[in-house]
Design a protein around this nucleic acid. Structure first.
Length: 506
RNA sequence: GGUCCAUUCGUCUAUCGGUUAGGACGCCAGGUUUUCAUCCUGGAAAGAGGGGUUCGACUCCCCUAUGGACUACCA
């Protein structure tokens, strides 16, 4: 069967989008675009208790920032003809299919309260609500029909459970892992629907929506692999096996150190963001840092994430979104979890900082300068950026590499003073001042020529002069070529800084 | 505990039975440089262990070990 590729990213609005979720969204997007298909965004808010205000908006904004565009669903520009795309708004739809299962005897009503179930679990080790145990529980299989009706009529809360037939090998074809087989006896009679909020649980809602929204491929995290057989069974119970989507379970993103799934705490602990955007928790007021605010380019984040669990098979490392789309393939997705290496993430941003146009970088840098009340024309800023960007990873690091172009040093690095400011230095700097005063054409080329001639004529030590010169102008032993620096700050400013250095350092 | 998934340099990975096991990040050394960086060159660094299958296994199979996920009226 050849049907249109339609994939969905289906997060739960329980908080900010985790970086692992971002990668899942990215892989879905790449797969969809590669095959000319549709990328949907569906909000899985069937757990009213865990709903967090602002989370949905955050998810849309994050995907938008990253360039992962949504064709259909929440946050899409066009309406889409499978609306609504929020599960909380689809209550009536699910009830119909729950009833269908009930009528077919493939599901049943259970009245056991959460407390009773907890008691059961405490009493029996490894208790599972299934074919072996449901006969001892309070449900429509053990109660007379009239009692079930009267209990419901009396307003008693209940859930609907799927009736799993034991001892069957359930096969799941996974596009990444191949065939996965699980015996149905180890699957419990999962709750599909709860009367308390009249909403289905994840499993039911997910299957019904994927069916109704004509999803062709379910690409999701590996944490869903254990419940995939249940989903296969649900498709079968509902009579949808012929249009069941194909599954692909992605490897997890792991902690950089130690073991386990990458979590919010790891970011706090190790000092890097695990969210795409800053997130302020509405309850605690606590803010978690995001890649955008940390100074990352969205392209760099996408590139970095794309390679955590997938590779092109070539030695190329830098990919545009379009290249990623062209090259992406599920059979090149790896099976094992990937430890999150933040250092490599920084390297990607470094690469993008070098490869982007000077105009774009200068434009971003100017915004930082304006915050510092520094206004310069863009041509000059571009020139400065061209001199210092190769030594930076982020636009916001540019300031520490180039502040001396805009403001004179207010102190001098002590170590350098001891090492580079000798007894004879002040006199030499005086000479340098009068030399520079005489230079008419104050370009990097000209000043370099004049100063070097003077140094060799006087038989001064090149390093001694230049380092003292740098100390006077920059205040620290850093920065680009000295003559490039003074050409930008100009003759007057250069001389002013030399005079001040002689004054202060003696 | 049970079920399932996984296992190549520290990390991300290439390899789809025959390779000096390749690349990248990071690390180290050297070079360039008036400084700090960058950059360039080079280097150290890997097939979890044990059995098979095979003329030949990193590659296929089994066992063990290790790691991970799941095991809710959460997703």
């Amino acid at each position: 069967m050849n049907r249109r590729v339609r994939v969905r990213f289906a997060p739960s609005p329980t908080g900010p989008l985790h970086i692992g979720g971002v990668r899942t969204a990215l892989y879905n997007y790449l797969f969809a675009k590669k095959h000319g298909g549709d990328m949907l965004l569906r909000i899985e808010d069937t757990d009213s208790a865990r709903f967090v205000p602002g989370a949905e908006e955050y998810i849309v904004e994050a995907l938008n920032w990253l360039g992962i565009t949504i064709d259909e669903g929440v946050g899409a520009t066009t309406a889409g003809n499978h609306a609504p795309y929020r599960q909380s708004e689809r209550k009536a739809i699910y009830r119909k299919y729950v009833d269908k299962l009930l009528e077919a005897g493939l599901a049943y009503i259970a009245f056991d309260t959460p407390e009773q179930l907890d008691a059961k679990r405490a009493e029996i080790a490894n208790f599972q609500y299934d074919a072996k145990t449901r006969g001892e529980m309070t449900n429509s299989l053990t109660l007379p029909a009239e009692e079930v009706i009267s209990r419901i009529a009396n307003g008693e809360q209940y859930v609907v459970r799927i009736k799993i037939e034991p001892n069957e090998e359930v096969k799941v074809q996974d596009l990444i892992r191949g065939e996965v087989v699980i015996n149905s006896s180890v699957i419990d009679d999962k709750v599909l629907y709860k009367s308390s909020d009249q909403l289905p649980t994840y499993h039911m809602a997910n299957v019904v929506d994927d069916y109704l929204m004509e999803i062709s491929h379910v690409i999701r995290g590996e944490e869903w692999l254990p419940s995939a057989p249940l989903h296969v069974l649900l498709y079968r119970y509902l009579g949808w096996t012929d249009v069941m989507p194909q599954f692909a379970h992605l490897p997890l993103l792991l902690k950089p150190d130690g073991n386990g799934k990458l979590s919010k705490r790891d970011g706090d602990r190790l000092g890097f963001p695990v969210f795409p955007l800053n997130w302020k928790d509405p309850k605690t007021g606590e803010t978690s840092s995001g890649y955008r605010e940390a100074g990352y380019f969205p392209e760099a984040v996408v590139n970095f994430l794309s390679l955590l669990g997938w590779n092109s098979g070539t030695e190329q490392e830098i990919f545009s979104m379009q290249e990623l789309v062209d090259l992406f393939s599920l059979d090149r997705v790896s099976k094992s979890g990937a430890k999150f290496d933040y250092e490599k993430g920084k390297w990607f941003n470094h690469k993008y900082l070098q490869n982007k146009s000077l105009e774009e970088i200068a434009d971003q840098y100017q915004r930082i300068l304006i915050e510092k009340d520094i206004v310069e024309d863009s041509e000059k800023v571009q020139h400065i950026v061209s001199l210092v960007r190769e030594r930076s990873n982020f636009v916001n690091e540019l300031w520490s590499q180039s502040s001396f172009f805009f403001v004179a040093p207010d102190s001098y690095d002590e170590k350098t003073v001891q090492k580079r400011w000798k007894a004879e230095t002040p006199a030499q700097m005086e000479e340098l001042i009068s030399l520079l005063e005489g230079v008419v054409d104050f370009t990097a080329e000209k000043t370099e020529e004049v100063v070097k001639e003077w140094i060799s004529a006087k038989e001064y030590n090149m390093g001694g002069i230049m380092n003292a010169f740098r100390l006077s102008v920059v205040g620290e032993p850093k920065g680009p070529h000295m003559f490039d620096i003074i050409a930008i700050i100009g003759k007057d400013e250069t001389i002013k800084r030399l005079i001040k250095a002689i004054e202060v350092l003696g």
